[in-house]
Design a protein around this nucleic acid. Structure first.
Lengths: 187, 187
DNA sequence: ACCTGAACACCGTTCAAGT
DNA sequence: ACCTGAACACCGTTCAAGT
């Protein structure tokens, strides 16, 4: 089973998500794209929410890979590049971004929670390395990592929803705001 | 018509939104809560999306009021208090926050766009005042305002989706991250 | 173990009609 | 100008049955 029905279902759901948002992800269309019946998904996922959760987990795992410790070079630059990658991914795939960071009430979907923990742990390691190199000020790396990530995340989210427009007089895109923050933090 | 059917519909939609998210806002239940039939909303709004847009616009207008220029006092503190208010509102009403900053494709819903512009213009004025008082560094107030707001917004959004946990070792809540940023900006 | 087809309840939207 | 009731197409989910 090279493709596997489960993977084909996740693929189809991601494609429909990109094209028309979560409400365009109907189980009937997912099944049609995957070449199965409209309720075959129930043999692989508890419900539509779990299918979307699998899409989100796959996406977040891919994002976490970009947070892998750099093979060398300036640690501050590695972290800055990781945040630019975060912003670039979100701007290129707004529906996936909104899905990953949407509300997931309940304690199920452990796959998604694990991916989130991996991403944050790797980011904290990058921050700690940047602190050691002197690119970032001292302090708890978890807290400074949350600061850096919150700025990047918020800049992207506001840009996607049109609440901070790029191109105006003093307005800036997410990438510029990330660079601004690193400059302020470098003192 | 003291309440007005339109206002009653928006009220009902907001209540259902708080209780169960956007998918709990069914036109049938909205009508029932407002004491009208399940398709009376179509006499006041083009569709369900426009009804939710009215809820979002009302919410964003209320938020913008908190950005009104302070009657005095330290301008830096006024801005910091405004960001704490932003975070407090979002944490208290997560569904409204997610709705306001969700995706609104298309150029309709001018009410929502106008509220967004008002909010951002007022924030920029607060930033400019804080710069004059020396609480914030110089530079384009639009750009610095975007930085401050992006951090606040991102901290709240990540906290709501559980991607930065409060209470852990070095972890911090949105309010603490806002204070951290102001400290770094004050140099 | 995985899939299908029919069926059910529910929802957004439209329409003809009423005051 | 505002509202109602019936109707339509569509969707998530369940179930009995097939291999």
């Amino acid at each position: 089973m090279p493709p596997g029905t489960r993977a084909a279902l996740v693929d189809a759901a991601a494609r429909l998500l990109d094209e028309g948002g979560p409400e365009a992800v109907t189980l009937r269309e997912v099944g049609r794209l995957a070449g199965v019946s409209h309720n075959a998904p129930y043999k692989h996922f508890a419900d539509k929410r779990a299918l979307l959760g699998a899409v989100a987990a796959r996406e977040l795992t891919g994002l976490a890979e970009a947070f892998e410790p750099g093979r060398g070079g300036d640690a501050g630059e590695v972290l800055r590049a990781a945040m630019h990658h975060y912003a670039g991914w979100a701007l290129a795939h707004p529906e996936r971004f909104k899905l990953v960071f949407g509300r997931w009430p309940g304690d199920d979907l452990p796959e998604l929670g694990a991916a989130a923990e991996t991403a944050q742990a790797r980011l904290v390691a990058l921050v700690a390395a940047a602190q050691e190199s002197g690119a970032l000020p001292p302090g708890e790396p978890e807290r400074l990592g949350s600061l850096v990530r919150a700025l990047t995340h918020g800049a992207v989210d506001l840009a996607l929803s049109g609440h901070i427009a790029e191109g105006g007089k003093g307005n800036a895109g997410p990438g510029q705001l990330v660079d601004d923050l690193f400059r302020y933090l470098a003192g």
